[in-house]
Design a binder for these strands. Structure first.
Lengths: 249, 249
DNA sequence: GACGTTTAATTGTCTGACAAATGAAAATTG
DNA sequence: CAATTTTCATTTGTCAGACAATTAAACGTC
């Protein structure tokens, strides 16, 4: 665990990297207590504020947690799936909003990943997952639901579908893809007719999952992917048209 | 952009959250310069070191970049895919190593996701992707290759397969799953016979992708998933046996 | 032995300071 | 006047020392 003292410009980043590498390599096991900030400052021959900046970098990645008090200090954190979810969603959301990712690209990725889950979900779904899917489907059928609420329920439905696969790694990977799509989905205005069709597809998917029929679920998901693209395309076309008539740039 | 001054224990975390929310919401556009550390300290009514800790948290997530000098400061960073890759791989690797994720679970997730790419890769693969897949397959056939080198080439092959789908969101999502598996894969010792079989499957997959035959690629990937599980199972069984004969715990 | 008190260790924050980098403005020079 | 050099102000990076808040262990008291 060494740093390069020749370059006194990136000290806190170097220290963070040194500790991070030690954690990743397993040299620092979970729940191991790091030396106190003062000791680290001595070891690396830097000041305490510099050490603190390094520790904050690691804390931002949930790699360590800190505790005050006599037996306190910084501890190697067991990275929980829920912590990772949050980071993944933040990162995915920013990637999509900052990199001119088209709706089509994001949508394709989301449904491709989701379809990968379908066979597993059909095999392993529990009553709980099915209940969530049914409940969300019912909610989506209620009149007077705002578009945002409809989207949120849509996300909940699809998360239940993914979680039904019973594979936490898949759930983690897909949390980002599904949740990050939500801001994009919120741009779509769902007419009563389109909602009806979506609810019908959700019902069919839930039926298929209940009947452990993965291939039907997969097929409907493919159809849903196409329909979602179609809806988005309509919104985009309408905006284009409005832009031309208004004469705005 | 406000913080709660009543709780003077988490100031830097609160400030980081306030700025992060502003970035995610779009209130702070890309390349926008944040106020200087001194100004932020005034705004939030905290000291400069506290502001700095908050900024370091954001820098660790690649949300901002900093520059010294007269016109320097902290700028909202356009999150690049490559930056996101790195974070995703780090997070995925730690999740797998810290949470007692079984090889079976990780392997299932990886191949499920990869199979989601297969139809798209078959449709869109370029000569470049095919060349990479062929080159890596040839490398894997060379005798005298270490297990680590074989695994690395395996990862390169599968990344080319994923990239061939031409969807950066998919590539990003899968980078984590594929790369994070590598430490687990490295535990497997590949016999000459098993390598031969894997190379053969890779060749068949490359052939299918070249022939834009997504379903064959999918089928072979399923077979490869099963075979990988089988190899891993053998390693685990052998270790169990060795443990019993040695009498170690 | 149970319970309250003290104490030491540790993080969180503050103040003030200096060094290094960097671009802009000012001064100099042809 | 134009080009170049110098100076300077701004900003981040780091340091030193200090105090407050928190926490658990050690201690003393009943």
């Amino acid at each position: 665990m060494k740093i390069d003292p020749k370059n006194p410009a990136d000290l806190s980043a170097q220290i963070a990297k040194a500790i991070r590498d030690a954690i990743i390599s397993g040299a620092l096991p979970v729940d191991e207590r790091l030396p106190s900030e003062a000791e680290l400052a001595d070891q690396f021959e830097v000041s305490r504020p510099t050490v603190r900046e390094a520790l904050k970098r690691l804390a931002a990645q949930s790699l360590i947690r800190t505790q005050r008090g006599a037996t306190g200090g910084a501890f190697v954190n067991r990275l929980k799936f829920e912590d990772a979810y949050g980071q993944q969603i933040t990162t995915s959301t920013l990637l999509l909003s900052m990199n001119e990712i088209s709706f089509a690209t994001a949508c394709e990725a989301r449904y491709a990943l989701e379809r990968a889950c379908a066979p597993l979900s059909a095999k392993r779904r529990t009553a709980d997952h099915l209940a969530t899917m049914r409940a969300e489907t019912h909610r989506q059928a209620q009149p007077g639901l705002t578009d945002e609420a409809f989207c949120a329920s849509d996300v909940a439905f699809h998360r239940a579908l993914v979680d039904a696969a019973g594979n936490p790694v898949l759930s983690y990977q897909l949390a980002g893809a599904v949740e990050a799509m939500q801001p994009l989905m919120n741009m779509i205005t769902f007419s009563a007719r389109s909602r009806e069709r979506i609810v019908q597809m959700h019902t069919t998917i839930a039926d298929a999952i209940e009947a452990t029929d993965g291939s039907t679920a997969d097929a409907i998901l493919a159809e849903l992917a196409e329909y979602t693209q179609e809806l988005a395309q309509n919104v985009i076309s309408q905006r284009e048209a409005a832009r031309h008539t208004n004469g705005a740039d």
